[in-house]
Simulated assay, not measured.
Amino acid sequence: MEVRELNQLEEAPMHLLLLADPSQSLNEEYLHKGHCYLGVEANDIVGVYILLAQSSTTIELVNLAVAQQFQNQGIGKQLINHAIQVAKNNGYQTIEVGTGNSSIGQLALYQKCGFSIYAVDRDFFVKHYDEPIFENSIHCRDIIRLKQTLG
């Protein structure tokens, strides 16, 4: 799989970004403020993520998504590792990521990739989203924040 930055002439794969975050307006904001990367296999976009600078030393990985037919094939891990490398290459000291309390698989994957939980934003999804989100039969209420120190 090739991972490359979205170029200015391309449209972002909103259908994939909406898998990671159901808010169209937040996705558009992330695209405007951040850098979008595509995982491409045989000319098909199979995954996506956005890196969003939080400060001169910290960058956040947001909206990581893999197309459903390509899930459980290691693509998410490849995209995370690519994001970590991009962050290192650009001189960031810390990379952060947040995911829902109901995102059991994602929580495991981020920890396998070297991230550690450092905070919980309680009731984030209840306060900021109009419709309740359910995943794995769990009400998604909180954001679990994870980070990794880059060295």
Rank of each mutant, 00 (worst) to 15 (best):
I80Q: 02
G47D: 01
L17I: 13
V126M: 03
K77P: 02
D123F: 13
N27D: 08
L109A: 08
P132V: 03
N90Y: 09
S23T: 06
F134S: 03
E11D: 14
Q8Y: 09
D142T: 01
V97R: 00
N63L: 09
N72L: 11
Q24C: 12
Q71F: 07
N43Y: 09
Y129V: 04
L79E: 01
S102M: 08
Y49A: 04
G34H: 09
H82L: 11
Q85C: 08
R145A: 09
V97S: 00
N136I: 07
L18V: 05
H32G: 06
E11A: 15
S55W: 06
C113K: 11
L61I: 02
I117F: 05
G74C: 11
L17M: 11
L64A: 05
I84S: 06
V86Q: 02
L107Q: 15
Q148E: 07
I104Y: 05
Y92K: 02
Y92R: 03
N90G: 05
K112C: 14
I144P: 04
Q106W: 03
E131R: 12
E131Q: 12
P132H: 03
L61D: 01
K112E: 07
E11L: 15
S137N: 15
F134N: 03
I144M: 07
S25R: 14
C140H: 02
E60M: 04
Q106F: 06
H15I: 12
H32Q: 10
L17Q: 04
E131D: 09
E60I: 02
H15F: 12
K147M: 11
E2P: 01
L150K: 09
N90P: 11
K127L: 14
L79H: 00
S103P: 00
Y118S: 05
I143S: 01
Q8L: 13
F125W: 10
D123E: 15
K127E: 15
K77Y: 04
V86A: 03
T149A: 12
G34W: 10
R4W: 13
A108Y: 13
V126L: 10
Y37E: 05
Q111G: 06
I138E: 13
V66D: 02
A67E: 05
V48D: 02
K88Q: 14
E135I: 08
G114L: 06
H32P: 00
